[in-house]
Amino acid sequence: MNEAVPWPLPGPATGHVPVLRLGDVLLVTLQGDLYDSTAEQLQRDLAEAIARSGAAGVVIDVSGVDVVDSFLGRILAEIAGQARLLAARTVLVGMRPAVAITLVELGLTLPGLRTALSTEAAMELLTGRAWPARSGGRHRGSP
């Protein structure tokens, strides 16, 4: 740790994590280190947003997260649980290899959560239709 770090730390200390709405899917992008209070706030915000919008799916992008501790792991599992009660499916997107290894070593395999490699794949999983294909599409080998 650097001794010149100002306190309180700059960043998402007080802020809410924005919840974006794409059709009937809610998109949340987590960035950098998350405070426990911010994570709890997100959990409340999402519950309200799902109830209000009647969204069918929640996509949580964690590709910008370097560290997921047991607390954040539990919050993610709880978000998935409450979303299921509100009839929405949750997909976790873009977890980094190091984070995945840490979570598995911690014993947090998040069994109730769906996962996807990219937001694109998550949208496909939730809406059941292929998102506009990338160039050199995946199904090149099919007859």
Binding site: L92, V93, M95, P97, A100, L103, T115, A116, L117, A121
Partner: peptide
Amino acid sequence: MKTVAAARLMGA
């Protein structure tokens, strides 16, 4: 099992 679980967490 660990490898499988970690791959699943990443969406594979």
